[in-house]
């Protein structure tokens, strides 16, 4: 298990290198540059600015300079957010994204898995149809529709929750001061969680239906075990495999790139920095976030593979 993890970490380094290189050149291939919006500046000032960020040098040299910095664990200065390094920006954005992303995926996994199991146990009955109907709706309604709608209902009309701020507010915070600090996060978390609940419940249902048809489930029933034990002990572990493999990349994605939701709720998270960085051609910022995202995906996939070994004894990590 340990040697397997080490091997995977050794592969992670070249993978990251390739991702950084590809993103660097793709980013620079995109037309325009960081100072194109400043139409009124003197050409000399622009040239000075470019020199300050090494943008006047040949592309390949820029690439080597950037690689050198990354190798030292530095992402360089942001071009757009003056006087702040990319590391500082990520340090302010990542906690916000982590907080809403992890909460959303945790809640979504709990609800999604329970709904999926319930639907699988009631296959082709009313409960199943209702759960899956709701899930389909959750997948079909995009978050850029859901999020403004929730803002309108719970923020503007009912005034229960604060809108587009990290400050506590709304009548909920006044009625229950204890949970006031959480109130700004409630709507973004729900908006992030709903599509995930839908996907996870469908995955769980499909996998559980498959598992419940297996011969060993019949054996467990023939042994006279209570249905609860058949489901939890004999079926669930195998039924969760597809959900676990989905959750790995999903967690990485939701934590680093809840772009739409962060934009709508005006949360200063990674997703917003990413979009702003891309629009402004803020090369170091975008590349820094890409590296964080890639690292998260690689780490989550490693965790998923290790978990697979735990859930399915036939998969021995390292083979």
């Amino acid at each position: 298990m340990l040697s397997f993890a080490l091997k995977r970490l050794a592969i992670a380094a070249p993978t990251l290198f390739i991702i950084v290189s590809l993103s660097f050149f793709l980013m620079h291939t995109a037309p325009g540059g960081p100072f194109d919006a400043e139409a009124n500046l003197e050409p000399q000032i622009i040239a000075n600015l470019k020199a300050a960020y090494d943008l006047d040098k040949p592309l390949f040299q820029q690439y080597l300079i950037y690689l050198g910095k990354v190798a030292q664990g530095e992402f360089g200065p942001s071009i757009r957010y003056q006087d702040r390094s990319v590391t500082q920006l990520i340090a302010t954005g990542l906690p916000v994204s982590l907080r809403i992303g992890l909460s959303a995926i945790f809640i979504a996994a709990m609800i999604g898995i329970s709904l999926g199991i319930t639907a699988a146990l009631n296959q082709n009955k009313t409960t199943d149809y209702v759960v899956m109907g709701v899930a389909m709706t959750g997948i079909a309604v995009p978050s850029f529709v859901l999020a403004p709608l929730m803002t309108l209902i719970f923020g503007v009309i009912l005034k229960l929750l604060p809108i587009a701020t990290l400050e506590p507010g709304g009548s909920l915070a006044r009625t229950f001061p204890a949970i006031a600090p959480l109130t700004p996060y409630i709507l973004p978390i729900i908006a992030l969680a709903i599509p995930q609940v839908a996907i996870i419940s469908r995955l769980t249902r499909g996998a559980m239906i498959e598992v419940l048809r297996q011969n060993y489930i019949r054996t467990a029933r023939a042994k006279g075990l209570a249905e609860r034990r058949v489901v939890w002990r004999h079926a669930l572990q195998a039924g969760l495999l597809p959900v676990v493999s989905y959750l790995g990349p999903a967690i990485a994605g939701i934590v680093t790139g809840a772009v739409v939701v962060e934009t709508i709720f005006q949360l200063p998270g990674m997703g917003r920095f990413f979009v702003q960085g891309a629009i402004n051609r803020d090369y170091p910022l975008v590349l820094g976030i890409v590296i964080i995202f890639a690292t998260a995906v690689i780490a989550m996939n490693l965790i998923v593979d290790l978990l697979y070994g735990v859930l399915d004894p036939k998969v021995k990590a390292g083979d």
Binding site: Q214, N215, Y216, R218, T219, A220, R221, A222, K223, G224, L225, A226, E227, R233, H234, Q237, A238, L311, D312, P313, K314
Partner: peptide, 28 residues
């Protein structure tokens, strides 16, 4: 009902299945 049946099967009445390879829970 299911609960009453579960008291009997596995205890006083047991069954052995054809394909033991797929009839045992793989992750237990």
């Amino acid at each position: 009902d299911r609960a009453a049946l579960n008291k009997i099967r596995g205890d006083r009445m047991a069954m052995i299945f054809q394909d033991a390879g797929t009839s045992l829970t793989p992750h237990m």
